[in-house]
Design a protein around this nucleic acid. Structure first.
Lengths: 203, 203, 203, 203
DNA sequence: GATGAATGAGCTTTCATTCAT
DNA sequence: CATGAATGAAAGCTCATTCAT
């Protein structure tokens, strides 16, 4: 039975998305994708040039957004004043705006890009984003507490922060809840860092 | 040339360990393992039934330890008093003891078990350990701050904590530095959590 | 958009001709042919049963001519008197007439038939024509120099002569130049043969 | 059943040689080659990295020889004095020496290289050799008969000569007969050329 | 014990052809 | 007439595993 072209393409993209999310690009199998999308191997290649092309189509929009972020981070307005806030409730309110802004990009396609792209030309994006986070983070640390002796922590915490965002996306599917959890995560991160740098805990 | 059986077996295990660490279980190739261990495919199968068997042998000891931990965590002595400490320097000192105790188990074999076991029957261990951490963590949260509205944070933070330990193991090879970083991570985690639960930040 | 049936058919034939000439029958791709003829795969099959059918239609006329030639060569008037001529300039003049006569048949369709038909039922035509040439040639040799000991040369030289005609068709597109070159080739062939049979050279 | 490694490799090479000769590189199928050599696809890849590697192994020796010829043709001793000879019988005797020298390289592997190499990195060799012939030929023509008005004939005749050598190799398998035919072909070529340039025929 | 030849199922990709619309 | 979605067989290639030696 023939179905409208765009429907089938969408079917394949959805099936591919789920297959890629489940197994990653390399282990994903075209045979699985086509059987999930109720079509045949040959027909798959009527819609996409090859396995990589489906992946590319899935992540292209979000890739472009983040490429822009990576290339222009110097000129993007910083929100440094957030660091001056000391009331967690105000943080929560302020952060909500930022997170809501980011939300449209923090979808499954973003997950594909940063967590399932091994074997594609986009495998570097995750590392790049973590490096970017890390260098921003390092600036704050140096400014605030230049004597802190654990350089590696900037990289570890950035990695950790990034992965926590991924985990929230993986385990929570509802946007509002995602935002709330991301804010908590943000707070956790800010508080923990400040505490480490000030050298005090739960006093 | 024949070498003593245990030596050859050890060679294969070491080569397999390095291959598994580098590529994970699924993408590890027997051909690579045998060529790293200066033997042949056929001989590999004299020592091990299949790819999974060599993985099993590599992680068995550490798996047994952690299985015990998982199954008996109720009866294991808790170190709750740590939560009462408020001076970061004292935390650092106290934690050092615990970490040093754990160190022997936090080796490459542990990394294999929790980070390279996709495709094996041990893939669940990572999840199980995170769940265990998570449920312990939940208890503390409930006790300390029963109204905190983000249940999922327990799981997210546990995951995050666990992954940070793995990352330290992966990026730092020297035991003392590993301990120091793990302690920092511990502190970061404790401070962040406390802050979140108390509803205050950098005051 | 629908165009008149014969126009579309002609488009497809022209596109197929160019594709077959370029790649030969086997490596020619229907997808290329339809895209060159601004139509679709499905429509191609409205006009032709399959890839072979379009080839057949392209070469049918010229095939019929040459089939006739092959089957009736005994009754076709020979031009034996040419062999009596000894002045190259006269040869050139006489040959020109014959070549001009043949020219209309020595077109791209002929090239298809004899040089791009691998994989079709017409692949034998080239061989057949060469055999025909060869047997004519043999007659002359036997008549002129019955003791010449290299029987195979008849077949080799016929092949060679035939292929040179094909090469001229492939590399030269202008009819007058084609004729001139074919005449030179004819002369070369006649002179060389005579020399071989007489057992003398450049004296 | 396992056979000695070199035997199987030889089987595969022979099967591949026959398959390549029959169908050319591109149309040759690994599945055919392995079934001709009574083995399996997987085993084929124990002996050769890929389809091209078998081809390369088949033609490497002869390729190296002809590469040397192509790169050093300027310094290779010419046999121009041959052109001074006018007795065909003496030509035959002189040429025999040269042909016998070449014979070891004029085998099926040479045929593969120049006539079945489409789709490999060696596809250019045939063209290169013909170009080399053609430029040598052109020199003689210019020297002997600078007013001859058919420039293209040098290229056509070179092509023709080359193809006739290939045809002899394809149709005749015995070395002595091959040599004899090649000599005849040489003579035919020399006589025809001279005749064309002198502007006379069978007088 | 040791060797590596052999196997076969699996992979991604191509393409002539069929057929529902 | 025209469209192009759908099919399936075949291609080159990979790799864990088996087994004769």
């Amino acid at each position: 039975m023939q179905i409208k072209k765009e429907t089938m393409k969408e079917n394949i993209l959805l099936a591919a998305e789920s297959e890629f999310l489940e197994k990653g690009f390399q282990k994903a199998s075209i045979r699985n994708i086509v059987s999930k999308s109720n079509t045949t191997i040959g027909n798959f290649y009527n819609y996409f040039e090859n396995k990589e092309a489906v992946f590319k189509e899935l992540i292209m929009d979000v890739y472009v957004s983040f490429k822009y972020l990576l290339e222009n981070h110097d000129t993007i307005e910083r929100v440094n004043y957030l660091w001056e806030i000391s009331d967690v409730h105000i943080w929560r309110k302020e952060l909500l705006v930022y997170i809501k802004n980011m939300m449209p990009n923090l979808n499954n396609r973003f997950l594909l890009l940063v967590d399932c792209s091994d074997g594609t030309p986009y495998a570097h994006v995750k590392t790049d984003l973590i490096s970017l986070l890390s260098s921003h983070f390092m600036e704050h640390v140096n400014e605030f507490s230049p004597d802190y002796p654990f350089d590696e922590m900037a990289s570890i915490l950035s990695h950790q922060f990034f992965m926590s965002m991924i985990q929230i996306l993986k385990t929570t599917k509802e946007d509002n809840r995602r935002s709330e959890l991301m804010i908590e995560q943000f707070l956790f991160f800010a508080i923990g860092t400040m505490g480490l740098l000030k050298g005090e805990a739960n006093d």
